[in-house]
């Protein structure tokens, strides 16, 4: 379980997170929605410790995220970065198998490569991309390689930052199913950021809406359409008119 308590983060005078309270139950899939630039990516980075929160507490399975053995802490996470963040000096398969080639999960290269190719297949990529470099792939393909890398070591907690952005509708469906499968079959806990409402409905158990630096609304996905929250209503229906200003 991930529990955030009053998490705040500002960059200079830009107060991005202003007191986030959120609980993500173990084995559940929580989707974070919210306008562009509201701090969704920063929120995930705070949990991972890539960005140091100014105040507040982050607990993962009852343990303070900032303390203790950092390697062991990070070993339970997988993360898909919004921009892919693939290592462009390594082959695609070496990216996917990064964790399996070094450190505590190290295994023979052939075995790691076989696992990488299997994970690539699960995100809809053929085996022949394995020996290409990330720079040779399209944006959507890079995104899916990033996804394969995030799930390669079968982590217990997975963060997906906009997994379906830039994918065609069919591929987006494949990825939605995959994320659902990882949560249901592997019992992983997932936090996904997305702007795609059909993704939200396909992936989420719970939905959290981030607005104005706080969690504006948090509830089960079934309540999304009758949340009674004007912010959520405006966002879900994509209306220009409403409490959320169009220019931010």
């Amino acid at each position: 379980m991930i529990k955030l308590d009053g998490v705040e983060k500002a960059f200079g005078r830009n107060r991005v997170l202003r007191g986030i309270n959120l609980e993500v139950p173990r084995g559940k899939s929580v989707v974070v929605i919210g306008g562009s630039g509201t701090g969704k990516s920063v929120l995930l980075k705070c949990i991972l410790g890539l960005v140091q929160p100014d105040s507040g507490r982050i607990m993962v399975d009852g343990k303070d995220a900032g303390r203790g053995d950092r390697d062991a802490f990070l070993a339970q996470f997988g993360m898909l970065f919004q921009g892919g963040a693939l290592f462009d000096s390594l082959h695609v398969w070496e990216n996917v198998a990064f964790r399996l080639l070094r450190g505590s999960l190290k295994r023979p290269r052939e075995e790691a490569r076989a696992i990488a190719i299997e994970k690539l297949r699960r995100v809809g990529l053929k085996a022949d991309v394995a020996d290409m470099y990330p720079g040779e792939l399209s944006g959507g393909m890079q995104k899916r390689v990033g996804l394969a890398r995030a799930i390669a070591a079968e982590p217990q907690i997975i963060f997906f930052d906009e997994p379906t952005t830039g994918l065609d509708p069919i591929m987006a469906g494949v990825i939605n199913d995959l994320i659902r499968e990882i949560v249901v079959e592997m019992g992983a806990t997932a936090m996904t950021i997305t702007h795609d409402m059909s993704s939200v409905r396909a992936i989420a158990d719970n939905v959290a809406m981030l607005h104005g630096g706080v969690i504006q609304w948090y509830g089960p996905v079934a309540d999304l359409d009758n949340s009674g929250d004007p912010f959520v209503d405006q966002f879900v229906h994509g209306r220009a008119e409403g409490p959320i200003e169009a220019v931010r």
């Binding site: 980075k45 991972l48 410790g49 890539l50 390697d71 990070l74 070993a75 996470f77 997988g78 993360m79 970065f81 919004q82 921009g83 963040a85 693939l86 290592f87 462009d88 000096s89 990064f98 964790r99 070094r102 450190g103 505590s104 890398r149």
Partner: peptide, 20 residues
């Protein structure tokens, strides 16, 4: 240039999350 590019494209962050 190489490391700075890795930094701005979040590759350094990705390294950290991959326990490296």
């Amino acid at each position: 240039a190489e490391i700075a590019t890795m930094k701005v494209t979040e590759q350094i962050d990705a390294l950290v999350t991959l326990s490296t």
